[in-house]
Structure formats: structure tokens, C-alpha cells
Write a protein that binds this DNA or RNA. Structure first.
Length: 262
DNA sequence: AAGGACTCCAACCGCTATTCC
DNA sequence: AGGAATAGCGGTTGGAGTCCT
């Protein structure tokens, strides 16, 4: 048995699209639409291509508002954080990026971002010290790893020199308790946009992507992306040459790893 | 200068999900 | 209800361009 092929493979053109083919397909779809049937489209257009090939060419290259070229830092962050939370669901990830296709995002991940991710995971495996973090994750712009701070007189924060940390938080007033403290950030806090939370000296911008909430604190040119799942998590903080840190969660969230830009 | 190694990305392939009859 | 057709998705490949020795 087996499926019937979607087209006559022997008589179908493969390989790179010529400008003429592109023009034909683009012109036809702009005038008539796809007609809801990609399989019969090539015949209607006058192309000897497989319908799937036409669909891919249109979606990935010819349709309007496709963005080509370099990915921005913010796009990087979205891809990394979404990949960490939902995995290789490229179509979903691409839908969060204006003008990007799933193929684009996938290629970008496979050629560039994955390397960053793998580096980070390797670094994490080298770390033997993993500590419990209760509802609070801390980061700092300092590259000295001198992260100790006191954010609230009711709470204590302990930072380990290897980059991991322990924090405790006794204020139960918020379920998404995430904060960052750095005495040098007060000036920058004034420029936060969007909804912000304040706790002690810290302020945050909250953003929701799908079911996942992300909290940013923006300090000067750097932007720290953090994650709040509203429950207990285990976390690492670490430095690496790629400017990303990793937070891994093991308890109440279904998500496993989160990246933040240092 | 040459050619081997590497990178990037468009396109293909095969599978699953969805729709249609 | 169930099988066929189609759409959509993610993994993989091939080749062009670039880098390195």
C-alpha cells in the first residue's frame, strides 16, 4: 500500500527556482490566490513543480512581508527562550517573529544559535553545584561575579563565587516573585516601559509569550531576561563568552531551561 | 593560487494532522 | 466511520559561497 505521491515525481522539476518561475507563481497567487489547493496549483500556474514545492517557495520566499537578513538580539532572545520552553516547534516560534518563517528560524537555530545553546549546556554540566532557588532569580551587569546584595531587609541572598546562587524570599504577596537587585540600577529604572513591578530597589518589565511569562530588567544597554514560573525552581547563574546565562527549572514548571542575556 | 574544510540556507523528504467525501 | 487527499511541520540534504592552510 502506502500513500499515493502528491505529484508525478518523474516529470517534476526540482532544484533552485528561476526568477521566471518565481514571477509566474507570485503573479498567479497575487491575482487568483492559491485556490485552496496547492497540489493542483502548479498546473494552473503553468509550472512543472510539485505543489509542495510551490507552497514552500511561496511561504518561505515569495509572499509579502517576508523579512530576510540578520536576526536581531531581541529575535535571538525570543528564539532561545521559546526553544528552551517548547523545543523545536519552529512554526510556533516563527509566528512570534514578525516576517520570519519556520524554515528561516530553523536554519538560523541550526547554524548559529544551537552552538550557543550547546556551549551553555556543556558549561552547565561542568557545574556540580546546583542550589535551590525559591521564587527569585538574581543577575547583575557586573562581570566580576560579585553578586551579593540585599534587596529587602526580610530576605537574604547568598551568592557563590562559581556563579551559582541561593536566594530566599519570604514575601508571599506575589506568585511570580522574581527580582533583581543592584544598587547601581536606580537611574535606569526610571526608563522601564510596559507593566513593571517594584520590590525593594528592583523593577521589572513583564512580557508574555504564549503561556510563558518573561521578566526583564533593563539596565543601561544590557537587558536581562529572566523567567518566572511562580514556583520553586533550581537555578544556575553563570557567565560565558556568548553573553547568555541559563536558568534551569526542575519543579513546578514544565519548562526546562531559560536563557537570559547578561 | 589551489583545494580542502566549513558555513549557510534553499529546497526536498517523509511523517503526522486535518479535511473532505 | 473510515479511507483518501491535502496541508503543514520538522529533519535532512545538497550545493554555492567563504574561509583556512
Amino acid at each position: 500500500m502506502g500513500r499515493t505521491p502528491c505529484c508525478d515525481k518523474a516529470n517534476v522539476k526540482k532544484g533552485p527556482w528561476s526568477p521566471e518561475e518565481d514571477a509566474k507563481l507570485k503573479d498567479y497567487i497575487e491575482k487568483h490566490g492559491t485556490g485552496g489547493n496547492w497540489i493542483t496549483l502548479p498546473k494552473r500556474v503553468g509550472l512543472t513543480r510539485c505543489g509542495k514545492s510551490c507552497r514552500l517557495r511561496w511561504l518561505n520566499y515569495l509572499r509579502p512581508n517576508i523579512k530576510h537578513g540578520e536576526f536581531s538580539d531581541s529575535e535571538d532572545k525570543i528564539i532561545c527562550t521559546l526553544f528552551a520552553s517548547i523545543g523545536s516547534r519552529w512554526s510556533i516560534i516563527a509566528s512570534k517573529l514578525q516576517g520570519r518563517t519556520d524554515n528561516d528560524v530553523k536554519n538560523y537555530w541550526n547554524t548559529k544559535l544551537k552552538k550557543k545553546f550547546m556551549f551553555i549546556n556543556h558549561s552547565m554540566e561542568m557545574k556540580s553545584q546546583q542550589v535551590t532557588l525559591l521564587s527569585i532569580l538574581q543577575s547583575t551587569t557586573s562581570t566580576s561575579q560579585s553578586l551579593s546584595f540585599t534587596n529587602n531587609k526580610n530576605n537574604s541572598y547568598y551568592h557563590h563565587s562559581n556563579g551559582s546562587f541561593t536566594s530566599s524570599f519570604s514575601n508571599s504577596s506575589t506568585s511570580s516573585s522574581l527580582l533583581s537587585g543592584n544598587s547601581s540600577t536606580s537611574a535606569a529604572q526610571e526608563s522601564f516601559i510596559g507593566s513593571s513591578q517594584k520590590c525593594g530597589d528592583a523593577a521589572f518589565v513583564e512580557q508574555n509569550i504564549g503561556d510563558v511569562s518573561y521578566i526583564y530588567n533593563e539596565v543601561e544597554d544590557s537587558e536581562k531576561l529572566m523567567f518566572s514560573n511562580g514556583g520553586s525552581v533550581n537555578g544556575f547563574w553563570e557567565e560565558n563568552p556568548l553573553d547568555y546565562g541559563v536558568i534551569s527549572t526542575t519543579s513546578t514548571s514544565s519548562c526546562n531551561n531559560f536563557l537570559f542575556d547578561e
